[in-house]
Design a protein around this nucleic acid. Structure first.
Lengths: 225, 225
DNA sequence: CGCCGCATTCAACATTTGTTGAAGATTAGC
DNA sequence: GCTAATCTTCAACAAATGTTGAATGCGGCG
């Protein structure tokens, strides 16, 4: 999909072909098995290139991982911030509602200009992995997502003027956790519900999660307790 | 703590000493770095025993992991179910409120008969890791926790008679995710809030999470939409 | 003591790991 | 067609991995 896209220079496209194939393979495998669960040889096999090529293009293994992580983070951040700006514009001169903010945060995940590319599903699972990786995962998440998250928390501060400051951050933790888990389980049936509720069904997930977290934030926002 | 406890036979206690030391070391390291991020040699070093001893007591590496995972799962399940039973008893003849059910689910994590043992903190991070490990993590979680979770969902079904069936399961996903993330980040400062909201502060976490998820469930329970 | 069952150590195994440097292929400019 | 630069492969490295089988300690029992 990415190989023949745009076709700026035909040569550049072909040159980047293997590079992006490595990135795609890394994305898929890292999302499935985590950083230590994937070998460079497995990535090379998946991408159908030589082992040494990953090293040539990206350097060391952890640098390849970061490159994989960063590639889509920037896009996702842009889409979310754009959606948030639109929510502000639509609600002006008032701040947007909590529901509108949640929609801005969640909507791009499902309805960004990319829904067709299945690689994004892998990426969400990758984010879930990083988000739950206690050691350096937190640092990575902070580095790539914090500026965007700050804007959302600021929006929530305006939508919930009575909320205590910690409540906003804890609420964001809950939001992030709920979202993370939904996508971590991407692709596997939910044994619990006997197949009634599938993590693959992003539309269903979206409808329920947005209701859940909106209510959670609004309740937290009341508590000057 | 476990080594000199009870002292059934002095020899048995000493015999289990190394065995449990291996289990403790594995718990700590697996929680920090995940399954593939930990070597048997690192566990042996942490437990101050020989490499081969882990193999002697637990067999293969993944069996050691499961043993680690199972050890506390049974206790946790018992505490939660006991708390749920008490909630039913206290509310009889009505079903317990959503808040009471959430308390039963969350309370044992913080106020079980174990708060003093720091190893439990590692265990929660371990559960978080397993919960987000897409491959076999889901199977492990199902195997060890599903019976308990079923009882809680059944309680919610009674507390929220208008809720659609899927809503209960998605709500549980959100609950589980919020909880998971809070403990996955155990031990590291929250860069986002500039240290205002620390994941180590379990009491704070508890107060906010319980409010958030209770509100989420109650809102989901209304939606016959 | 001698024997036995258990726990523990030792040394080693075959693989696999990330990484590298040199050699080969491909492309672009002239 | 020659050159230079970039991309790709090949072969190999040392280090680390999970696992094993034989050897060693060590308690209790006859």
């Amino acid at each position: 999909m990415n190989s023949a896209s745009a076709s700026a220079h035909p040569d550049t496209a072909r040159l980047e072909s293997r590079r992006t194939r490595i990135l795609d393979a890394a994305e898929k495998l890292f999302a499935e098995h985590g950083y230590d669960g994937v070998t460079l040889r497995a990535i090379a096999r998946e991408a159908d290139v030589d082992v040494a090529l990953a090293n040539y293009h990206f350097g060391r293994k952890h640098e390849l991982f970061e490159a994989t992580f960063m590639r889509r983070a920037e896009l996702l951040n842009r889409w979310r911030i754009k959606a948030l700006d639109e929510a502000f514009a639509a609600a002006a001169p008032n701040p947007p509602s909590v529901r509108a903010i949640m929609d801005a945060y969640l909507y791009p995940i499902l309805h960004g200009p990319h829904i067709t590319e299945p690689a994004w599903r892998s990426y969400y699972a990758l984010v879930a992995y990083v988000n739950n990786s206690t050691e350096w995962g937190g640092k990575l998440m902070s580095r790539f997502f914090n500026p965007m998250v700050d804007r959302f928390i600021d929006a929530l501060r305006k939508a919930l003027p009575d909320a205590r400051e910690e409540a906003l951050f804890w609420g964001y933790h809950c939001l992030s956790g709920a979202l993370t888990l939904a996508f971590a389980q991407t692709g596997r049936l939910d044994k619990l519900s006997g197949g009634l509720c599938r993590s693959e069904d992003l539309e269903e997930a979206y409808r329920h999660i947005v209701v859940f977290v909106t209510a959670g934030f609004e309740q937290l926002g009341l508590s000057t307790e």
